[in-house]
Each structure stands twice: as C-alpha cells, then as structure tokens.
Simulated assay, not measured.
Amino acid sequence: MTEALPDVRTFRLSPEVVAPLRERLSHVSTQTIDAIMAEVPAYAEAFTGDLGAKIERAVRTALGTFLKLVSRDHGPDPQSPLAPGLEAAYALGRGEARNGRSLDALLAAYRVGARVSWHELAEISVATGQPAATIAHFAELVFVYIDELSAASVVGHSDELASSGRARTRHLEQLTLALLAGETQHTIVTAAQRADWSPPRTLTAVLVPEHAVRTVVDLLDRRTLRLSEAGPAVPDFSVLLVPDADGTARAAVLGLLRGQNAVVGPARPWLQVKASYDRAVRTLLLPGTSTKTVVDTEDHLATLVLTADPQALADLRAKVLEPLSAAADLSAAKLAETLRSWLRHQGRREDVAAELFIHPQTVRYRMTRLRDLYGDRLRDPEWLSSLFIALSVPGEA
C-alpha cells in the first residue's frame, strides 16, 4: 500500500474526465451511503440521527478529496489534497469508538463504500469514453485511496479507545478514593456517574499484596474497583472494592480467593464501604494475623471489639489485675493464666487442669490464692465480666 501511495498523488485526470465525475458526486455519495446502511447493520440506525449527517459529510469529503487528488487543478504541493480526507477519516474513527461501534463494523463500511463508489465512478467513466487501461488504473487508485482512509480511521478508533480508557481509569480511581475517604453522597454519586460505573447494592473491601493484585482482580466481578496503594498504615498492599459479595456470594468470593493472600472485610452498602475498608485494615494490623492465606474479618470480631480502644483496655487490665501485684512476678503470671482458664471453663477444675497440664489439686491451690487476693469480687458479675474481657485478648497476661 505504501509503495502505491505516490501513484495516488501523481496520477492525473484531465478536467474533461473529472468534470462529469464531480457533477455526479452527490449521486455517488447517496448510493454509497444507501449501500452501507443496507449491508452493515451497525450503521442502519446511525444515519438516522445527528451522527448520520456527520458520516454523510465524511463520505462526501472522502470522494471529493479523491477527485481533487487525481485532477490537475490543485497547487504545487502534491500531498495537500490528501490531508482533508485523512483528517476526516481519522475523526470518523474516533467518533465511531466514542459511539461504541466496533472496528469490524467500520472496516466493513469501508469495504462496501469502496465497492459501490467504484462501481458508480466506473459507470460514469465508461459513459464518457475513457480507455479501458485508464479505467483499470483508476480502479487501483480508488482502492489504494480507500485503504489509506481506512488506515487513518483505524488509528483514530484506536487512539480514542486508548484515550477514553485512560480517562475512565482515572475516573474509577477518583471514585475509589472518594469512597474510601467517606466523601458526601453527592460527591460519590457524581464520581460514579463520571466514571460510567453502575453502583451495586454492597461493596466489600479486600486487601491484597500489591504484587498479587493483577492475579486476584481477574478472579472477581469485572465492576471491582481498585486502588494500588491501600494507605500508609498498610504499605505494600492494594485495596479492591468487590460488588455484591454478601450473603451466599461471600462464600463464593472466599472460595475464589483460596490460595491467595487477602484480607476480606464485611459487605456494606456501597456508599458506606469505608467501614469495610477500615475493618480490613484493623484486622490486618492485629498481632498474629497471617497474610499467607485468606483472612476473613468475620472470624476476628471479638478481638476487634476488645482492641477497639487499646488505652481503655490497658486501663481495664491494670484495674482488674491490680490485686495480683501482691504476688511475685512468676506467681502472678501463673495465677492470671489459671484465672483466665477458670473463667473460660466456668470453674470446671478438671477442664482447667487439662488445659494447663497441671494437677487438679494445683488448680484448687491457685484458686484459693486468687480468692484470698480478690475476696468477694470473684462473685461479682461485673468484676467477672471485666476480668474476662481483660484476660481474653490473645498474647496478653
């Protein structure tokens, strides 16, 4: 095609030959448009709206540019007559991408247009008595020219998709940031509309290591939102917001994530997904949380509640364990361990002994010591509740 291009620019027809072609240009354009509408279904409705007028102008511009190109009436620059046709073809490609029509439909329209326009132009040339060799060469030039136009449209179509894809990616990131920042409903809804994103009923925050996010996101709903940096509290993690992963769908999502490293927050109404994100982050930061498997925040609710206010928990622990300060350090640790087990097993001595691998008599001795230290407080429901909370956090004595 590139080698033949100079022929398009250098081949000339006399004004006597071009004149009847130009006179019938409107007819040729109409015939070409009618054929495209009949043979390419994607364009049947396009020509009936505002877009139709634009496409008709593009067809007429293409045919007019070609006739000007092969005539002898343009200036000394042999390349300038081709520019309007290429610019119109490029703009047509971008417009078709914006309107959701595929490249296949566009190229089919060019094929039909080339065939029909050549048929009409050839009839005119034959009627004016052009030699067969001239008409054959003319045919070659028509199809080379159409190839140039279709190539320009392909570039326009691709450029528009790339541009709109980048723009939509930015809009989706802005939507995700607005959701995680807990912006106002108006701000979030506007961001969703700008990103052309249809809100689900619920969203679930999922934290995954940055290196695994591509693999994980391919497993999930295509509407899943993503942000490459989950926040300063959890560096090296990305956040995914998964649509409608509640109810029975939650088990399905957990199953899809099996074998991956992920922390799955609770499902929340989509405008309130920040709460899901916050819980996922808190769970990830819990002591002992493993990131080598799927972590379901629903399995850590008690610990999350107990550690919601670390300073209050520390104060409570200091208050309810103060009686043990009268015992030696080692003895105090053993007494606290026994008291925790005693509370957990509701005073069943044999169960406490089995858990701590000690003799039941040792349990009896330690509990006698604890009753001496606490007195009637071990019969007070409020004190028992406080003791249970203070001694329930993993890793705390």
Score class of each variant (00 low, 15 high):
Asp244Thr: 02
Pro266Met: 09
Asn261Thr: 14
Lys292Arg: 13
Pro269Tyr: 05
Pro232Arg: 15
Leu285Cys: 10
Arg222Glu: 15
Gly255Trp: 07
Val253Ala: 07
Val253Leu: 14
Gly259Phe: 03
Val295Trp: 04
Thr289Phe: 05
Arg268Cys: 11
Gly288Met: 09
Leu241Tyr: 03
Val281Asn: 06
Ser228Arg: 15
Leu241Gly: 00
Pro235Met: 02
Thr291Glu: 14
Leu284Val: 09
Gly231Val: 01
Arg268Ser: 12
Val281Met: 06
Gln260Asp: 14
Val281Gly: 10
Leu304Val: 00
Ala251Gln: 13
Asp236Ile: 04
Tyr277Thr: 05
Gln260Thr: 13
Ser290Leu: 09
Thr303Lys: 01
Val294Ile: 02
Ala245Gln: 03
Val281Pro: 12
Leu241Lys: 01
Leu304Asn: 00
Ser238Gln: 05
Tyr277Ser: 10
Leu256Thr: 12
Asp218Gly: 15
Lys274Trp: 13
Leu256Cys: 11
Ser238Ala: 13
Ser290Glu: 07
Val273Glu: 14
Leu254Val: 07
His300Ser: 05
Ser238Trp: 02
Ala252Tyr: 12
Asp246Pro: 04
Leu225Asn: 00
Ala302Pro: 00
Asp278Trp: 15
Leu240Gln: 01
Arg282Trp: 13
Phe237Ala: 12
Arg222Ala: 10
Leu254Ile: 11
Phe237Lys: 10
Leu254Pro: 07
Val294His: 02
Phe237Asp: 08
Arg222Ile: 11
Val295Phe: 03
Arg226Cys: 07
